[in-house]
Amino acid sequence: MSVLSKFASIALSAAVIATPVVAQDQKALEAAVKARQAQMTLYAFNLGLLGGMAKGQIEYDADKAQAAASGMAALATLDASRMWLPGTDNEAMENTRALPAIWAEGSDVGAKAEAFGAAVTAMDAAAGQGLESLQAAMGGLGGACGSCHKAYRAPKN
């Protein structure tokens, strides 16, 4: 086998192997976006109960409030690194509003995630302790959600 054809066969086999890997990567990226959006939906689902109580639209119930807040705290423990893979920004993919700045140098997304974790912990501690304590924790939680969305989410079209 000539040197040239050897190179060609390596290149060819590499291409054959590479194609399914790329397709698999694409699937993993799409699954990651789906997973994090599902996580957001579940946050909103639990917040719906807490917020409804805070607004006086749902009668306050300490046990139910506590369960919803604990649910949020559990959600916050999910491994974020698998759901926020590089290459899942809104320039690389269509079905996400996540800005590339999340992964760019100087991104403070980690600090914002920590602040969110602290706000969820505060809500977990407050929700079962009476309506006023729940209401007082809403602002901090809203601020933590908002600060990340403001910096790292593209506006709706």
Binding site: L47, G51, G142, G143, H149, P155
Partner: peptide, 23 residues
């Protein structure tokens, strides 16, 4: 109460947060 909550925590009635300049 939805409007007042939005102006306080930024949560919409769907529990999304305020976006753009409104944040």
């Amino acid at each position: 109460s939805d409007i007042a909550e939005y102006l306080s925590s930024g949560f919409t009635p769907e529990y999304d947060s305020a976006g753009g300049e409104m944040a």
